[in-house]
């Protein structure tokens, strides 16, 4: 294998791992926002403990 292979593989892998972290962060954040909006639309709030 040439040195180009090792260099390219290193950069591609790094890009994929960082992109994976970014995509995971975005998907997770949107999922929590959706869940929160759903709960709030059902009238669940911090004040529901009082009544």
């Amino acid at each position: 294998m040439t040195h180009t292979f090792f260099i390219a593989f290193s950069y591609i892998l790094t890009a994929l791992v960082i992109a994976g972290l970014v995509v995971r962060a975005v998907i997770d954040h949107r999922a929590q926002l959706r869940a929160l909006a759903e709960l709030e639309s059902r009238g669940v709030g911090r004040r529901s403990r009082r009544g």
């Binding site: 997770d28 929160l36 709960l39």
Partner: peptide, 18 residues
């Protein structure tokens, strides 16, 4: 995201209690 996750968890528990 973790703060939101905890809010969701708290609200889910409150809803279950209600």
């Amino acid at each position: 995201t973790e703060i939101l996750r905890r809010r969701v968890r708290t609200l889910t528990i409150l809803e279950a209690e209600r």
